[in-house]
């Protein structure tokens, strides 16, 4: 069962990796090609030296991802704390609103957000992109962190209050260090979202050197439907996936437990 699952999940990815590493002749003719002209790094050279080069998109995505993660956590931590401490109808209403926005397909917002970007002069600005991204990540982040706050024993914070720690200090010295695993998994999920977001990046960013990875890839793909140079594309997809692959493999435990714990407790 396990190998079947791995085959299902990894075969398409493995095929991309294979495609990126062989010559066009090898792709078309399969094993009929001479060994010397089968494997190649030419595809990678091509996307690395393209104009703009692939690393530029990766860098852009990383910048947006970092800014989005920082902004989301800055807003989500106090919100989650307040929501957890709050009782009654307000808590119920906010939770419901967060759930509704969490499942909302964000593509339906692109039109109005595009107008907003134009009105406020935020188009073609990487850091500005983190504003809508943070908003789109907030519902999930707040729900996950609220569940994490709920996990902490209330007596811990009481003890800190008795010692005279005010709220910012309680957060800094007691609560946030204990929430570190949840903060990490929330941060990773926010970064993943930001790295992968497409419709808003597509409409907000038009200058090629500012594109994040998803619209950049789609733009190359859009150049032609049937005669695309697949080897180069595969190399681009492999490079674009590599950072996430590393994140998922390194932080696998905290991603899985962060999501499952949040779902159980939320």
């Amino acid at each position: 069962m396990r190998s079947l699952l791995l085959l299902w999940s990894l075969a398409p990815l493995a095929w991309q990796l294979y495609t990126s590493l062989v010559t066009p002749e090898a792709l078309v003719n399969g094993s009929g090609v001479a060994a010397g002209s089968f494997w190649t790094l030419e595809n990678y050279r091509q996307v690395w030296l393209a104009d703009p080069p692939i690393w530029r998109y990766l860098l852009n995505s990383a910048v947006v991802g970092g800014a989005t993660t920082a902004l989301t956590l800055t807003l989500a931590v106090p919100c989650a704390y307040g929501l957890q401490r709050q009782g009654g109808r307000l808590r119920w209403a906010v939770t419901l609103a967060l759930l509704a926005t969490a499942i909302f397909p964000t593509v339906l917002l692109f039109l109005a957000l595009l107008q907003l970007a134009r009105a406020l002069g935020l188009a073609n600005n990487l850091l500005a992109l983190s504003l809508p991204y943070a908003a789109l990540c907030l519902p999930l982040a707040v729900l996950l962190l609220r569940a994490a706050f709920a996990e902490l024993p209330a007596e811990l914070e009481d003890a800190a209050r008795l010692e005279g720690l005010n709220l910012p200090r309680r957060l800094r010295h007691v609560l946030l260090p204990l929430l570190a695993p949840s903060l990490a998994s929330t941060a990773i999920l926010v970064f993943l979202f930001s790295w992968n977001e497409y419709p808003i990046a597509l409409t907000w960013i038009s200058r090629p050197e500012l594109l994040t990875l998803p619209p950049a890839i789609a733009r190359i793909a859009g150049s032609s439907l049937f005669t695309v140079p697949y080897g180069a594309f595969a190399a681009a997809t492999v490079l674009g996936s590599l950072p996430l692959l590393l994140i998922v493999l390194i932080f696998q435990r905290s991603i899985v437990s962060g999501l499952t714990q949040g779902a159980i407790k939320g």
Binding site: L5, P12, W15, T19, L213, V248, L249, Q252, V256
Partner: peptide
């Protein structure tokens, strides 16, 4: 089991546009 979970999760974690391009080739 942890590794299995991480690897199974990969398709969800990677950008849709990147994967869509991959499927176009498949």
């Amino acid at each position: 089991r942890g590794w299995l979970r991480a690897l199974a999760l990969l398709p969800w974690a990677l950008p849709t546009t990147v994967l869509a391009l991959g499927w176009r080739w498949i």
